[in-house]
Amino acid sequence: MSKSTRATLALAAAKATFEVLTYDYDPDADKIGMQAAESLRVSPSIVLKTLMAEVDGKPVCVVVPSDREVSMKKLAAAFKGKSANMMKPANAEKVTGYVVGGISPFGQKKAVPTVFEAEAMAHELVYMNGGQRGLQVKLSPAEAVAVLKAISAPVVA
């Protein structure tokens, strides 16, 4: 497994302080973030999943704890939109350039507006997908938000 991905290269280019970790990816896992947390032996609340959605038909990236679900109403409100829906997996892969299970908010093919769940900001360090299945990056949520020029808002149900 390569530890050099578009995500890790983007973090390095931004001079972010991060650590790269690998885990045994289970392609049959119902919830990839939960499986990553279990494999890394950390709380699911600090393993953040990267989801792709649309607000008023425009792509957005949503980063939330792996044990939580996104509220479409709150997501739309975070981007001052009227409606939100999850992006179809094939569209998410096309927009990000990553495969499902390996979608990172960093180094996406095209930068899109990103929101971090406000609760995640309370942690000293969080784990996020590093751009391929079985690869995570560990960094401070504040640094992740800064690198992505993201917003932080309550978006979980």
Rank of each mutant, 00 (worst) to 15 (best):
residue 64 V to P: 01
residue 64 V to K: 01
residue 64 V to M: 02
residue 65 P to D: 02
residue 65 P to Y: 00
residue 65 P to H: 05
residue 65 P to R: 01
residue 65 P to A: 04
residue 66 S to V: 00
residue 66 S to L: 05
residue 67 D to N: 14
residue 68 R to H: 10
residue 68 R to V: 08
residue 68 R to N: 12
residue 68 R to I: 05
residue 71 S to G: 04
residue 71 S to N: 04
residue 71 S to F: 03
residue 72 M to E: 07
residue 72 M to R: 10
residue 72 M to A: 05
residue 72 M to H: 00
residue 72 M to L: 14
residue 74 K to L: 12
residue 74 K to V: 06
residue 74 K to P: 14
residue 75 L to S: 01
residue 75 L to H: 01
residue 75 L to R: 03
residue 75 L to D: 02
residue 75 L to C: 04
residue 76 A to K: 13
residue 76 A to N: 08
residue 76 A to S: 11
residue 76 A to M: 09
residue 77 A to P: 09
residue 77 A to D: 13
residue 77 A to N: 12
residue 78 A to D: 04
residue 79 F to H: 14
residue 79 F to R: 11
residue 79 F to W: 11
residue 80 K to L: 11
residue 80 K to P: 02
residue 80 K to S: 15
residue 81 G to P: 06
residue 81 G to W: 07
residue 81 G to V: 08
residue 82 K to W: 02
residue 82 K to D: 05
residue 82 K to T: 02
residue 82 K to F: 08
residue 82 K to C: 01
residue 83 S to I: 00
residue 83 S to L: 03
residue 83 S to A: 10
residue 83 S to D: 07
residue 84 A to F: 03
residue 84 A to M: 04
residue 84 A to N: 03
residue 84 A to R: 00
residue 85 N to F: 13
residue 85 N to L: 10
residue 85 N to T: 13
residue 85 N to Y: 11
residue 85 N to E: 15
residue 86 M to N: 00
residue 87 M to S: 10
residue 88 K to Q: 13
residue 88 K to A: 15
residue 88 K to F: 10
residue 89 P to W: 03
residue 90 A to C: 09
residue 90 A to S: 13
residue 91 N to I: 09
residue 91 N to H: 11
residue 91 N to P: 00
residue 91 N to E: 14
residue 92 A to M: 05
residue 92 A to G: 02
residue 93 E to Y: 03
residue 94 K to W: 07
residue 95 V to S: 09
residue 95 V to K: 08
residue 95 V to H: 06
residue 95 V to R: 12
residue 96 T to C: 07
residue 96 T to H: 08
residue 96 T to A: 10
residue 97 G to V: 09
residue 97 G to S: 13
residue 97 G to H: 07
residue 97 G to N: 15
residue 97 G to C: 13
residue 98 Y to H: 06
residue 98 Y to L: 01
residue 98 Y to V: 03
residue 98 Y to K: 03
residue 99 V to N: 12
residue 99 V to Y: 07
residue 99 V to L: 12
residue 99 V to A: 11
residue 99 V to W: 06
residue 99 V to I: 14
residue 101 G to D: 15
residue 101 G to I: 15
residue 102 G to H: 01
residue 102 G to K: 02
residue 102 G to N: 00
residue 103 I to M: 08
residue 103 I to V: 15
residue 104 S to K: 02
residue 104 S to Y: 04
residue 105 P to K: 10
residue 105 P to I: 06
residue 105 P to V: 04
residue 105 P to F: 07
residue 106 F to C: 05
residue 106 F to N: 02
residue 107 G to M: 14
residue 107 G to R: 12
residue 107 G to C: 13
residue 108 Q to G: 15
residue 108 Q to L: 11
residue 108 Q to P: 13
residue 109 K to P: 00
residue 109 K to H: 00
residue 109 K to C: 02
residue 109 K to G: 02
residue 110 K to M: 11
residue 110 K to F: 05
residue 111 A to Y: 06
residue 111 A to V: 12
residue 111 A to W: 09
residue 112 V to W: 03
residue 112 V to A: 00
residue 112 V to F: 02
residue 113 P to D: 06
residue 113 P to Y: 11
residue 113 P to M: 06
residue 113 P to W: 05
residue 113 P to T: 06
residue 113 P to V: 05
residue 114 T to V: 13
residue 114 T to K: 08
residue 114 T to Y: 08
residue 115 V to C: 07
residue 116 F to A: 10
residue 116 F to K: 15
residue 116 F to S: 13
residue 116 F to V: 13
residue 116 F to H: 15
residue 117 E to P: 05
residue 117 E to I: 13
residue 117 E to Q: 11
residue 117 E to D: 15
